[in-house]
């Protein structure tokens, strides 16, 4: 199982990549999550442009048999949705930390980043 060290993680199995200037973050689901879900067939995100609080739902991800909610790892404005997932949701399975990213958030409470898990802590949790 692959958990890149430069990312931060949540107990809900999302990863967070903070931009160099610290103003925004890219979010997706982890390798562990995509493997648990199996073939992903639909990523439904209709919160683009909305301010969404930490731990609130920003969308859903559907595998063949299951629906899972997606939770904001930190508060902010949902600035962008990865539109490649509309036609190719399987990118989440194939490349969860790259092409399978889900949203970009403009951060409103950067201090919340400190509450996220390190790769090591997340690996321990899923282990």
């Amino acid at each position: 199982m692959n958990f890149p060290a430069e990312l931060r993680y949540t107990k809900d199995h999302e990863w967070v990549r903070v931009s160099e200037d610290g103003s925004s973050a890219t979010v997706g689901i982890t390798d562990f999550a995509q493997n648990e879900l199996g073939d992903i067939v639909y990523v439904d995100i209709d919160t683009v442009g909305d301010d969404v609080g930490k731990d609130d739902v920003f969308g859903t991800v559907e595998a063949v048999k299951t629906v899972s909610e997606l939770f904001m790892p930190v508060s902010g404005t949902v600035a962008e949705f990865n539109e490649a997932l509309e036609g190719s949701p399987e990118l989440v399975n194939d490349d969860p930390y790259g092409e399978g990213w889900m949203i970009r958030i403009d951060l409103s409470e950067a201090s919340e980043l400190d509450d996220l898990l390190t790769a090591e802590a997340y690996a321990e949790m899923t282990g």
């Binding site: 199996g38 063949v64 048999k65």
Partner: peptide, 9 residues
């Protein structure tokens, strides 16, 4: 068994 790797395949 639910699947052996991929339900879709």
């Amino acid at each position: 068994p639910v699947h052996y790797g991929s339900i879709i395949e």
